[in-house]
């Protein structure tokens, strides 16, 4: 071995030691594995990591490993989950409303019906905003503009067929317009749509409350309505419903188990997640991240999941994103 290859190995080893010193000891044997079917950084990943933190902090699991399987709104992740984790009661997967839409739009052969529903954990209300300079002041005026000419009202939001798109289509429908004519401009995640709204390039923008919060408080954007049933705590933005637009939708996130587990294993997992979701560690994390607690477990959640699948399918069909 030449001097220099030795040097390179020495550097590698030195880095190992240095990093090991900083990062602490390696992971111990695992009890539970949670799949986040999206890239690190997104909402599902954060939910999975928060679950990991709460489960370990409360001593509900000896150790929890989170892994990411990215691709197509969770279509790749769920396909892997139902095949490789089948019958394994130590596996969980985070999912949400976005996955319902993505599976339909991608004509995925795997559906959420093949998983074992455990619980819905959080929900985030959406907000419709216009630039501060816009002449539109409230939801009725926006509805009137939609009714006058649906094409001229341009919407900015996240990916096609996602929760923002669904909300725009539902708004147009409730305002008396044709949802298949909604002029929705999808932007990549991470708030590129925010720049389009701030720059006055579009009529209105839709996103989770958290993503626009700073700009709304700074007076650069005007929030004209939230999509929750009641006003958000500590926030006087009126709901769409109280302004006469009967639209309630939330970007919920939930957790499911693989198919093929026994009813006892399912009951155990539901009990475990319920205990986690009621723990102070979890509630603190929710507060820290600004998420709304929206726990719904077991059979009630399974029924909710079916309802949402039907609703999303109807909306995507009305937009023309899926053919009946």
């Amino acid at each position: 071995m030449s001097t220099w290859s030795k040097a390179v190995i020495a550097i590698l080893l030195a880095a190992t030691v240095a990093v090991a010193g900083c990062a602490g000891e390696a992971l111990a044997q695992n009890d539970l594995k949670i799949m986040a079917p999206a890239a690190p950084g997104g909402g599902w990943n954060q939910t999975a990591r928060a679950m990991q933190q709460a489960l370990v902090a409360e001593g509900l699991a000896k150790s929890v490993q989170v892994y990411n399987v990215t691709g197509a709104g969770g279509s790749v992740g769920i396909a892997q989950f139902v095949t490789t984790s089948k019958g394994d009661p130590h596996q969980l997967m985070v999912n949400g409303l976005v996955m319902v839409g993505a599976l339909l739009a991608n004509r995925s052969p795997v559906t959420l019906d093949q998983t074992t529903p455990i619980a819905r954990l959080t929900a985030e209300a959406l907000v419709i905003v216009v630039p501060a300079s816009s002449s539109i002041k409230n939801a009725q005026e926006l509805a009137a503009a939609v009714k006058a000419d649906v094409a001229k009202v341009t919407w900015a939001g996240g990916s096609a067929g996602g929760v923002d798109h669904i909300t725009a289509a539902l708004f147009v429908e409730k305002a008396g317009g044709d949802p298949s004519k909604v002029n929705y401009i999808p932007f990549s995640g991470g708030g590129e749509s925010l720049a389009a709204v701030l720059g006055g390039k579009v009529t209105a923008g839709i996103s989770g409350w958290g993503e626009y919060e700073g700009q709304i408080k700074a007076g650069k954007l005007r929030a004209i309505g939230v999509t929750s049933a009641q006003r958000l705590p500590g926030n006087d933005t009126p709901t769409l419903r109280e302004q006469g637009v009967d639209l309630v939708i939330a970007n919920w996130r939930s957790v499911v188990a693989p198919p093929g587990i026994t009813p006892e294993q399912r009951a155990d997992l539901i009990a475990l997640i319920e205990r986690m979701a009621k723990s102070s560690a979890w509630l603190d994390l929710l507060k820290q991240k600004g998420w709304e607690d929206d726990l719904l477990a077991g059979d009630a959640f399974a029924a909710f999941l079916r309802e949402e699948q039907t609703r999303v399918k109807a909306v995507l069909t009305s937009i023309g994103l899926i053919k009946p």
Partner: peptide, 10 residues
Amino acid sequence: VIFLLFDKVL
């Protein structure tokens, strides 16, 4: 070395 460094430590 790669496995220990990346999988175990990082």
